[in-house]
Each structure stands twice: as C-alpha cells, then as structure tokens.
Simulated scan of single mutants.
Amino acid sequence: MPLIDTHLHIIDQSALSYPWLAGAEALNRDFSYEEYAVQARRAGIAQALHMEVDVAAHEIETETAYIAGLARREDSLIVGAISSCRPEDGDFPAFLERQLANPMVKGFRRVLHVMPDALSESPTFRDNIKRLAKTRFTFDLCVLPRQIDKAIALVDLAPDVTFILDHCGVPDIKGEKFDEWSGKVAEIAKRSNVIAKISGVVAYANADAWQVDTLKPYVHHVIDSFGFDRLVWGSDWPVCTLGGGLATWVAATHALVSGCSNEERGKLFSQNARRIWNLG
C-alpha cells in the first residue's frame, strides 16, 4: 500500500539560507532530494509534499521555486509544496495573490512553536489566516502542547480554513508527559476543520530506547481522537533521522496500524492526502 509523504524537508545550503540550522548541529548539513528519493522508494513512498524549512524570510518564494524545479524532474516524487508565510505582515494579501497563481503551492505553514505565543493573537495574523477561506490552501499548525489552546483559538476564528496539526501535536514522549498533551489533542480534534498529521514522533522519543510500544499510546490517541477520515501521514525527513531514520519510521507506522482495516490504512497512507490537496 503506497504512502504519500506530506512532510518532506529538503535542505540545500548552497541554494537557500536556514538561520535556525546554526543551533541544530545534528541537522546542519545538506539533505538532498536525491538522498531522500532513494530511501523513500525503498520504503514504499509514491509521492511527497515538500514542507517549508523556515528559510530566511526574503527567500520564501525562492524556496518554492527551488522545490518546483525538483518537482519537474523526470519521475520526481514531489507533487506540491507547503510554503512558508508571514501572516503577521501587512503585505501578506499580495503574497497570497501570487501563490494563488502558482499551482505548486498547496498550503502554508508559519512555524509557531519557536515564536512568541502572542504572534498568532495579533489582529493582522488572524485576519490574514481568515483570507485562506475558500482557497485551496491549508494551514499547518506546528505548536507545542502548551500552545494548543492558542491553536484552537485560531481554528475557531477561521472555521472555513482547513488546518493540519503537525507531528501529533508534538508530545513529549521522552518525558512521558502523556496527560499534559492528550486532553488538548482531544479538544482540538473536536473541530471538524482540523486534520492530524501522524509524523515526527520518533524525534520526540528517546532515540536509543524507543520501541513501537513507546509510540503506540500517542499515535493511537490521535487516531481515536480524529478518526481515519481526518488523518494524513508524514515522514518529517530528515528530522526523523534523529529517531532512527526514514525506513525505521515507515516500519513503525505499519506496525502501529497493523490491526486496522485496509480501508482505514488507505485513508491514512494516501487517500486523505489526495482529497485534501487534490493530488493526482
């Protein structure tokens, strides 16, 4: 059963600037499309959406153009891009108009878990998120458990926008803080315009000690809270290399949903992604 990877990061420091990499030694190198594609095909990944990598703000559209070039390669796995954005800026409406003319762009993300909580509460930010209503664009929420309340407020202000909760809501698996996270995930799951992304969790567990059973309570809670009609899957490559790598995460995914029906796994693995982002 093929996978659509909704969360691929390509890092090419010869082409783009990534200011945050200076503080992320384990990821501070190039992670090329070629490296990913070999591993992805071996793991059964058939298509991928590129997720923005928080490039320097002035290079946001340059990053999209770079990824579009990779997508044009023969037999490329890349079928679209989730672009970075700055909804807090007054020029966001003009930026949005340009992206509407670019079929490569399927949605947006503004990384929030490393930003002040007040960022998403500004009137400009909120008004600009509302502008995504009645467009094809989704908005990815990358927040810490303590910030899920902020995400819920944003979701409630824009009920006609489809939001994607990245990385199962970023649980602290290593710290075994299930209770601090689970209730907030269940609460945001009550909003029908939120989709959960099963991704990233291997990077939040103890890299040397996690097993499938370590991840199971977290992943199964997300599945139970959202249901299979509102789930997508992502590799979070290369961040997943911090917890074992792409092949390990794919194998763990199959183990985590081994008791589910083919119909349920099909929705998680590819069908929901095709529907949400209108992928061919």
Rank of each mutant, 00 (worst) to 15 (best):
E59H: 03
L144S: 14
D166E: 14
D236I: 05
A46K: 06
A273F: 02
A26H: 13
A151M: 05
I60M: 14
K130N: 08
E34H: 12
D179M: 10
A196M: 02
D208R: 13
V250R: 09
E61M: 11
E59Y: 01
A40Y: 12
L100V: 06
A57K: 07
S261D: 11
G69S: 07
G227V: 08
L112M: 15
L231F: 08
I223K: 03
N262E: 15
A247G: 10
R41S: 09
G107S: 05
H50W: 10
E97H: 03
E180G: 15
D117L: 05
H221L: 14
C240L: 05
M1Q: 12
R29K: 15
A43H: 03
P171E: 09
R274L: 09
D30Q: 10
V232Q: 02
L242K: 14
R274D: 00
L8R: 03
R265W: 00
I164V: 15
N128A: 00
W20K: 12
A158H: 07
L16Q: 06
I11N: 05
Q13T: 13
L246F: 02
S199D: 04
S235R: 06
A151T: 07
W210N: 11
G243K: 04
W237V: 11
S84E: 14
E35M: 12
E187T: 13
V219K: 06
L8A: 02
P103T: 01
S225N: 09
P217C: 12
R230T: 07
S17L: 04
P217K: 12
L165S: 04
S199H: 03
G234R: 05
H9G: 10
N206L: 05
E59P: 02
K190A: 13
A118N: 11
E34P: 12
K267C: 07
S120P: 01
L16C: 07
V111P: 07
L77K: 06
D236M: 07
E88C: 08
W20A: 08
S225H: 02
I4L: 01
E63Q: 14
E121S: 12
N28D: 13
N102T: 04
H167L: 10
F228T: 15
E180Y: 03
T162G: 04
F269A: 14
P103E: 04
Q99I: 00
A207L: 06
G234Q: 11
S199K: 01
L16V: 05
V212C: 13
I148S: 04
R136V: 00
D140S: 04
N28K: 12
S14Y: 00
L268T: 01
A189S: 15
P2R: 03
H58A: 14
L70V: 03
P171G: 11
D54L: 04
F163Q: 10
